[in-house]
Design a protein around this nucleic acid. Sequence first.
DNA 1: TATGAATGAGGGTTCATTCAT
DNA 2: CATGAATGAACCCTCATTCAT
Lengths: 219, 219, 219, 219
Amino acid sequence: MGKILENKKKKKERLLEAAYELFTSEGVENTSVSDIARHALVAKGTFYLYFKDKYEIEKILIAEKSNEIIAAAFKAAVKEKIATNEENVYFIVNYIIDYLASDTKLLTFISKNLSWGIFTEAILTDNDDVLDYEQLVNILIYDVKISDSEIKDISDIQSLEYNTGKVKYKDVDIMIYTMFELVSSTCYNIILNEKPTTLDTYKPYLFGLIGAILKQHEI
Amino acid sequence: MGKILENKKKKKERLLEAAYELFTSEGVENTSVSDIARHALVAKGTFYLYFKDKYEIEKILIAEKSNEIIAAAFKAAVKEKIATNEENVYFIVNYIIDYLASDTKLLTFISKNLSWGIFTEAILTDNDDVLDYEQLVNILIYDVKISDSEIKDISDIQSLEYNTGKVKYKDVDIMIYTMFELVSSTCYNIILNEKPTTLDTYKPYLFGLIGAILKQHEI
Amino acid sequence: MGKILENKKKKKERLLEAAYELFTSEGVENTSVSDIARHALVAKGTFYLYFKDKYEIEKILIAEKSNEIIAAAFKAAVKEKIATNEENVYFIVNYIIDYLASDTKLLTFISKNLSWGIFTEAILTDNDDVLDYEQLVNILIYDVKISDSEIKDISDIQSLEYNTGKVKYKDVDIMIYTMFELVSSTCYNIILNEKPTTLDTYKPYLFGLIGAILKQHEI
Amino acid sequence: MGKILENKKKKKERLLEAAYELFTSEGVENTSVSDIARHALVAKGTFYLYFKDKYEIEKILIAEKSNEIIAAAFKAAVKEKIATNEENVYFIVNYIIDYLASDTKLLTFISKNLSWGIFTEAILTDNDDVLDYEQLVNILIYDVKISDSEIKDISDIQSLEYNTGKVKYKDVDIMIYTMFELVSSTCYNIILNEKPTTLDTYKPYLFGLIGAILKQHEI
DNA sequence: TATGAATGAGGGTTCATTCAT
DNA sequence: CATGAATGAACCCTCATTCAT
């Protein structure tokens, strides 16, 4: 029985992977349910046992992939044992940008959807490897007390306890929203087209602005 | 002959209007060429006398509508006889935001495409009421000498002569790119969902950042 | 499972039959995929599960029907226990001509396509009742040793062993090519229009020429 | 007025030329009436003032081009002052084959339609440069008395008087029919695909058969 | 006569969805 | 649960033909 349940999960996973593969290489609109099923080595009808249509898969993938990126960034940040909030933010933003720059297919796919909006919406995936809003905020703007034990999994991060940093921020929602929108929106064109400039020359401007955003919200 | 030509122009216009109507209410992907033709009270085949496919219409509409907004904003700015560059920028940005907030269908349609990229690309429309890149830059960041005569048309703006402002800016491309991306990207969600806050409460933050962007590029 | 497979074969057969019906009565160019599907009492989309387009069906039908004729002729020839090569050739040619004369729709359809080219090309049908090039040549120009048992199926012919006749031929390819082209090309008009003469009055001339062709290639 | 009539004739001619150009390069089925009109620098509606549809043009062109070839061959034959009927036939057949081999587009177009049937049917063109059936027969199988004057035009050939040759033929219709069918049908594949052999190696066989045909009909 | 804008039927094709197996 | 054959609506697009100018 457990085997059957596992098999089911595997099939769902295979469908998601196949869809991601096709969405990133062919585009969502040029990918049909048949394509996805064929790629997942699953019958067409089986698709409908797990998902309503391809747009449901799209939503899930955007959420999943966004979360993956964010989680990876935060995980790395925690490991870095960064001293100040500001440095922490820079580190995370930089990590995400480089991540996307190294995987332009992913960038094209989640395009400008890596916005804060995603995290406030209900996450549609079963994946438990997800940080909730509060935890993200904590890691992002508060000092992080690192446990001595190794962090092997995202769940280890979730259980960390955070010490409040010395600097406090007001309207944190707005602050983070603005930051994410600014970063994802500007970097999209710059990474994909190197217009109006290259990523490297743009970064100083971008980090300058992030500094300004933080300043705006300092209490 | 003039009658036929006039008729053709009218038909093209009707098709564009019908398409805009449907694109904004149903979405581009849910609108078929048949729909557009039916709405324009024109035979399906007639559509193809004027456009290659619905995506050509989409491009044209995005360009047209973007230009309309920008042109309206700049026209208004010129009339306002604003003293400083900074104030000028604020005025224009504010104008555009309010414009989009008052027409959410338009906002949804051009969505995040109101980027600077559009203006540097070749404009695909026949509409001559278009400011070129250089002119936009001039109006945006330099002092504008107002002629005494009434400005009735966008072409009147184009023929104005600009006095260089006292403040000079470097990397103007980057500056304007960042400003446009920030504004369009952040306002999109805020206007449509009022999340994470309302437009009115958000504006001060936004203008604060625009100020920061200008500062970054001051020489 | 067997039921489904059987059903599929039936449907394919129905489509082929419907197509043949329409191709012969209306012409290939005046027959649409919709027509074929409608005639086969099958949804339009179903057509595309079995064939790429109507031209694939056309090819298959030409090959199938050609093979049918040839196979029938050769089968009959084997049964006839004909003594000499020459007589054998006459018999086969005569059989084919009479066959086509009795089914002018078939003649119109395969028209001048019953050429030697068809047999050298890969046959596109699933039908296994097909003689290959070498076998055809053997039957056509060599003496055939008849087994005592009844010949029920084309495959029985294929397994026959042939004794080389006393008369040998050079450039067999050219010989057979010429014969087939001459017969199919001349009989087409004569059967369909009885111009410039009737089939019966024409036959002696035709067989005379076939004799001349054989003579040309005798070693 | 004469000018207008001339103009009309020119337009018709331009349409025919344009159609031929497109039929030979793109194929009849892939050529639309629009294409023809555009190529002829004529309005689409104008096409219908001269022809019913593209198939009417196709018929006319096949007839015209066939006649051109035949006429050219016979004109050349007359000039050659060939002694015997047989030689005359060989010359004409050879001329036609080489003509088609040098213009495979033309060959593809008239394909296997260069049959005797064309000459017995009513010719659909206005072109007066056409030999009628009787004249063709005369030139082909009877001795030709050459006038001393230069032959400048096909009409000069038409007015020649022929002396009956010593050899007489019966069933001339059948004889010529068979010859034309044999030649056009066999040469089509050989010229276009060099299968089953090349034209040069095939010619001896072909002429051998033509000899046989002539023999068959000798009285 | 000549035009070419307009028509709309009909072509080929795809694909989400259903359902008997 | 899983399948994949079957459906048929809906897509895009072409084009022969008409007709007002």
